[in-house]
């Protein structure tokens, strides 16, 4: 047994802590293991697509089609990412897309011209999202319940407004713009890109994004640090609603009509994309890049199945498998890092 006298103990090392061990590290791109895996999955799927359809899959028209199909769900997923990082969930996104698409295409709205149609869709989405947010933040409803109510009632209102009929867009100006292209790239794809870039900047470079992470990571700590958690929560759901309004613009442009059946199952697709993108369902952690890759993975799978004439039931089974596999893969990387 070693036993030293207190005298020697005193001389061993004098200051308790070593001098500043802390030179701020130079920032640089740090490849994230989880994102890399996810990106790998996307690449593998693209290879499969190319092998099974070498002439069609990587053609310009197929890529353009895939991205235009991904656009609406992609934008909805941006809002969903904010909501989930803040520690919540939004089940009503599909219904809000339907409501916005119907409201902007009523004969009355269309009579004011394309610009008012756009404003209408955005306002409806923002308004519905804000109602969600107020109910959750100030009405103290659980997000699951509040947005479940919106899920039911927004679609109900959409059915009521449209009489369950498909409302065709008669404003050629609207269609010309949103179905057009800029620099050879469809406007819808531009919109998707812009929403992701803006979303990324907001999430990572603004106080709003910081607070979203703080509220989702530890709402109590955020509150005691002076953040108005209630107001912030309400705003996050409003952002999700606004994204649904933008998605409605895209759906209406693609289908040249508004209908109460639009946006069906968007909530499930968006949650799936966000989760396989590595965002934690418990809040506080997540990335938009992951969400984007998640959306693209589903789009590519759809395309592969369509080009090989496979049934949608098989497609849905495959989706389920992908969700489980992606989450397990990430769980694996998480665990190995912890030990």
């Amino acid at each position: 047994m070693t036993a030293s006298s207190p005298g020697t103990a005193e001389t061993v090392d004098q200051p308790v802590q070593p001098p500043p061990a802390n030179v701020p590290k130079v920032r640089g791109f740090r490849p994230d293991l989880r994102l890399s895996i996810l990106f790998g999955v996307l690449v593998v799927l693209c290879v499969i697509g190319y092998v099974t359809g070498p002439d069609t899959f990587l053609s310009e028209s197929n890529i353009s089609t895939m991205l235009r199909l991904a656009a609406a769900i992609g934008v909805v997923s941006v809002g969903m990412t904010f909501v989930i990082i803040s520690g919540g969930i939004d089940l009503s996104v599909g219904s809000m897309v339907a409501l916005a698409s119907v409201w902007m295409t009523t004969l009355a709205t269309q009579s004011y011209g394309p610009f008012v149609m756009v404003v209408c869709a955005l306002a409806v989405g923002l308004g519905a999202g804000l109602i969600n947010g107020l109910l959750i933040a100030y009405g103290k409803l659980v997000p699951f319940i509040a947005t479940l109510a919106m899920y039911a009632s927004a679609r109900g209102l959409a059915e009521r407004l449209s009489g369950r009929r498909t409302q065709v867009v008669n404003q050629q100006g609207y269609l010309d713009f949103f179905r057009g292209a800029f620099l050879g790239i469809p406007v819808l794809i531009w919109m998707l890109a812009v929403v992701y870039v803006v979303g990324w900047v907001v999430l990572n470079r603004t106080t709003f994004g910081r607070r979203t992470f703080a509220v989702g990571g530890n709402a109590e700590a955020a509150r005691l640090a002076g953040i108005n958690v209630k107001r912030h929560t309400a705003m996050v759901y409003a952002v999700a609603g606004l994204c649904c309004g933008i998605a409605a613009l895209m759906v209406v442009a693609r289908t040249t009509s508004g209908a109460s059946t639009n946006g069906l199952y968007y909530e499930l697709d968006a949650i799936a994309a966000v989760v396989i993108g590595g965002t934690l369902l418990t809040g506080g952690r997540g990335t938009l890049i992951g969400t984007l890759i998640g959306v693209l993975i589903f789009t590519v799978v759809n395309s592969i199945f369509t080009q090989n004439n496979l049934e949608t039931d098989v497609q849905n089974i495959a989706k389920g498998v992908i969700i489980v596999a992606a989450v397990l893969l990430q769980y694996g990387t998480n665990r190995t890092r912890k030990t």
């Binding site: 607070r211 992470f213 990571g217 530890n218 700590a221 955020a222 640090a225 953040i227």
Partner: peptide, 21 residues
């Protein structure tokens, strides 16, 4: 841990949290 720290964020985010404005 329960009332002050955002455990899954970095030192930077935690320190600047009250000074963001």
């Amino acid at each position: 841990k329960a009332e002050a720290l955002i455990l899954d964020r970095g030192v930077r985010d935690n320190v600047s949290l009250a000074s963001l404005r």
